[in-house]
Design a protein around this nucleic acid. Structure first.
Lengths: 207, 207
DNA sequence: CACTAAGATGAGTGAAAACTCATCTTTATG
DNA sequence: CATAAAGATGAGTTTTCACTCATCTTAGTG
């Protein structure tokens, strides 16, 4: 929900973290971003089990540097997650401001699944980084965002009243997982989501 | 459940393989079964990344024995998969013979998801053992079984005509995956499946 | 019971990957 | 420009794991 600041594209990262304890040196800042970008790319291709060395290589730095910035592989994974979730959060804020609140939820889910199909990261990470992250602030933000979208969709009469947040999230993570392993194409994705959306919609067309 | 033979717990394995080239020695047979059971338990708990040594320990045999029976970890994983799928196949055959063909599909999906929630195996394996297994005979059998259930459900007017096998499988694997990571309880599981089933059902109550 | 081949054993091997640290390089400041 | 601290480097170190093999044990047959 946070209107972070800029660059809707994705690569240009705002570094909009409020917790700036250390004024990083210029090159350090540059390297951290390179590492993050490289890690995202590598993990997107090969999944979270890809080696840290490969990330370092892709980033054009030495391994030590990676471990200086992210003391553990988990930390790196989590940093990526935070970035991804932040972006999703931005997208969500936009959709929430939309004037078709009924469709906003569906659009968001569609986009997230699309992203998952391309990148192993989002989903694989949710699994690998595990339970601890589930409670982390970023995930909480995402959760709250989805909650808002759901609530508005229900107010608009587009989604059944008895659908709760947990089910939507369960469905979302599930479909994202499935989109990976089964090697979905666009058509299958559309059809599958259509089924789920049909299940979410209010039975008799409109309220 | 299965028309194969006995012991619904999981340990008693049918060995219903038609490809019996070698008459195994008595102890060898016993050990193979122990290993299979242990592997299933271990992988169910810790996921497919659990070590082979742990499997050996649980089975009460040495590591070498495990590798004598299953020359590779993949082979062990696949053997487990084959067993699990075989059991599911049996269940499916029963359901197909049921006189409520509309609900048969839903029942099967529910059962499979229940199993997935308890055992990391089914799902984790589908992911880890990967694409090669997707074409294997066991999976093919499962696929065909689901196809039958779907066809009958559609004939009975319980499921939309435009739903295809691929979507059902996509949904099934997705939900199974989700059931694992999110730590679902029974209630959430029921609600989530209800949404999916609502999406699968024909819109206006009956045909 | 003797005997042999099938089977079991478990220390050992090699590869892969996460993480460390002594040493060199670069940035920013007076 | 000098200099000190922050940062980068990459060859180890350690751990974990799949897999092997020389040796011992056991099941089945005459």
């Amino acid at each position: 929900m946070t209107p972070t600041n800029s660059s809707p594209g994705g690569t240009g990262d705002p570094t909009g973290d409020p917790g700036d304890a250390k004024p990083l040196r210029a090159d350090a800042q540059r390297n951290r971003e390179r590492i993050l970008a490289a890690a995202e790319a590598v993990f997107a291709e090969k999944g979270p089990s890809a080696s840290t060395e490969e990330v370092a290589a892709r980033a054009g730095v030495a391994i030590g540097t990676v471990f200086k910035h992210f003391p553990t592989k988990q930390a790196l994974l989590q940093a990526i997650m935070k970035g991804l979730l932040g972006r999703l959060d931005g997208e969500m804020a936009e959709l929430a401001a939309d004037d078709a609140p009924g469709e906003a939820l569906f659009t968001f889910v569609t986009r997230m699944v699309e992203q998952a199909a391309r990148k192993r990261t989002v989903v694989g990470l949710l699994a690998e980084t595990g339970v601890d992250l589930q409670v982390a602030s970023s995930v909480r933000m995402l959760r709250e965002g989805i909650e808002t979208l759901l609530a508005r969709s229900q107010e608009a009469g587009a989604v059944r009243e008895d659908v709760r947040l947990d089910e939507v999230i369960a469905l979302l993570t599930g479909i994202c997982q499935g989109a990976l392993h089964a090697g979905w194409d666009g058509d299958l994705q559309r059809r599958t989501l259509a089924i789920v959306f049909a299940g979410l919609r209010t039975p008799e067309g409109r309220r």
